[in-house]
Design a protein around this nucleic acid. Sequence first.
DNA 1: ATAGGTGCAAAATATTTGCTAGGGC
DNA 2: GCCCTAGCAAATATTTTGCACCTAT
Lengths: 123, 123
Amino acid sequence: MYRTKQRHAILAVLSGNSSHPTAEQVYCRIRRQIPHISLATVYRNLKRLAEEGLILELSFPDEPNHYDPCTELHYHFRCDLCGWIYDLESSQVQIAHRLSSQGFSVRGQQAVFYGACASCQTK
Amino acid sequence: MYRTKQRHAILAVLSGNSSHPTAEQVYCRIRRQIPHISLATVYRNLKRLAEEGLILELSFPDEPNHYDPCTELHYHFRCDLCGWIYDLESSQVQIAHRLSSQGFSVRGQQAVFYGACASCQTK
DNA sequence: ATAGGTGCAAAATATTTGCTAGGGC
DNA sequence: GCCCTAGCAAATATTTTGCACCTAT
């Protein structure tokens, strides 16, 4: 597999922090090292890394996509006010209740699994 | 609160089925009853209904938003092949495992809560 | 050498907004 | 009548794509 410096740098930015950056944010950081990198390259690599299962693509309403280097099943909390995305413990069953006791005000939630359904697999 | 026939029709389409339609799909169905309705009106109403907490706005990668009349905490499974979005039981803790035994092939997952974090609430 | 990736610009997609006219209360 | 909403068109935002050139293997 092709291992370009662009792809390396993108993975490094993601792995290096827990900020769940957008494509634009990844692009800005990488320009320090690779000033001529194109935003399209960032998008292309992020999309591919997600398809390869190396990173997770997170979709929120009213938001560009965010990217997460942690591909384990885990939950997130997104603050409506500051936009920060917190990682949560997946072992907590009644997360919404616990969040309240920790000072988070929960307005909504969603949980999604992706894959192929039974009927499509038999086609 | 203003109760236009457009708003009513949009809510009716959503409540009447479990297909988690997109704005475009809602628009197509409503045109049968209100041929002159504008797509912008559909978008505006869906956005508002979501803000008011009457419906849920679901965001997926590579997909326009989908809308769900059920605002209770529950999980979804989206098939990569046919695009269908299944509703899942929220009481199942190890959903991913159960899905496998039911013939679903799980490629990825995400779970998100929305609201205001503790530090923003004290501002 | 060649397959595959990059950069740039343009296109495609999804969604929002400004404005005027019309409907609900 | 007044205010909010609809309809239309144009704008915006995000992401993808075509193509010529470059680079890793």
